[in-house]
Lab assay of single mutants.
Amino acid sequence: EAHFQVQLEQLRSMGFLNREANLQALIATGGDVDAAVEKLRQS
């Protein structure tokens, strides 16, 4: 989780407030914030 701290903060600042969902999306996308946003929008 600490590995994705910067990305988690970016997602939070973009309005994605579900930390667990954000973390799962980042893990699934290897930390790619843009891909994580797409994944979160689809769910």
Rank of each mutant, 00 (worst) to 15 (best):
residue 1 E to N: 01
residue 39 K to V: 07
residue 22 N to D: 01
residue 28 A to H: 06
residue 43 S to L: 13
residue 32 D to N: 15
residue 7 Q to T: 04
residue 33 V to G: 03
residue 35 A to T: 10
residue 29 T to V: 14
residue 12 R to H: 15
residue 32 D to R: 10
residue 37 V to E: 09
residue 24 Q to T: 13
residue 23 L to T: 13
residue 9 E to Y: 02
residue 18 N to T: 07
residue 34 D to H: 09
residue 40 L to Q: 04
residue 14 M to L: 10
residue 17 L to K: 15
residue 10 Q to A: 07
residue 3 H to N: 14
residue 8 L to A: 06
residue 22 N to V: 04
residue 35 A to N: 08
residue 33 V to F: 03
residue 26 L to S: 01
residue 2 A to C: 06
residue 3 H to G: 10
residue 8 L to I: 15
residue 27 I to M: 07
residue 13 S to V: 12
residue 1 E to Y: 04
residue 35 A to C: 08
residue 3 H to C: 09
residue 37 V to H: 08
residue 1 E to G: 03
residue 22 N to K: 02
residue 14 M to V: 05
residue 39 K to A: 11
residue 36 A to V: 06
residue 21 A to R: 07
residue 25 A to C: 09
residue 5 Q to E: 13
residue 35 A to I: 10
residue 20 E to L: 05
residue 3 H to S: 11
residue 38 E to K: 14
residue 14 M to K: 13
residue 23 L to W: 08
residue 38 E to L: 10
residue 9 E to W: 01
residue 41 R to M: 04
residue 22 N to L: 01
residue 30 G to S: 12
residue 24 Q to S: 08
residue 17 L to E: 14
residue 8 L to T: 09
residue 2 A to S: 13
residue 25 A to Q: 09
residue 22 N to H: 00
residue 30 G to D: 09
residue 40 L to A: 02
residue 43 S to A: 03
residue 37 V to T: 08
residue 42 Q to N: 15
residue 19 R to T: 07
residue 7 Q to P: 11
residue 15 G to V: 01
residue 34 D to A: 07
residue 1 E to V: 04
residue 6 V to C: 05
residue 31 G to L: 01
residue 28 A to P: 02
residue 21 A to M: 11
residue 34 D to N: 10
residue 20 E to I: 06
residue 20 E to Y: 02
residue 13 S to N: 12
residue 42 Q to L: 11
residue 12 R to N: 13
residue 31 G to I: 02
residue 31 G to C: 03
residue 36 A to P: 00
residue 14 M to P: 00
residue 16 F to C: 14
residue 15 G to A: 05
residue 11 L to H: 00
residue 5 Q to R: 05
residue 13 S to W: 01
residue 26 L to E: 00
residue 7 Q to W: 02
residue 33 V to E: 03
residue 24 Q to F: 09
residue 35 A to M: 13
residue 12 R to L: 07
residue 41 R to P: 09
residue 41 R to V: 08
residue 22 N to G: 08
residue 36 A to E: 00
residue 25 A to Y: 01
residue 24 Q to D: 15
residue 31 G to M: 02
residue 33 V to S: 05
residue 43 S to V: 15
residue 32 D to M: 09
residue 32 D to K: 13
residue 15 G to M: 02
residue 29 T to N: 15
residue 5 Q to T: 14
residue 7 Q to V: 03
residue 17 L to S: 13
residue 39 K to E: 12
residue 40 L to S: 02
residue 21 A to H: 14
residue 43 S to R: 15
residue 20 E to M: 09
residue 43 S to Q: 15
residue 16 F to E: 07
residue 18 N to E: 14
residue 31 G to T: 01
residue 17 L to M: 08
residue 24 Q to M: 04
residue 36 A to L: 01
residue 38 E to I: 09
residue 41 R to E: 13
residue 14 M to S: 09
residue 25 A to V: 09
residue 36 A to C: 08
residue 5 Q to M: 09
residue 30 G to L: 06
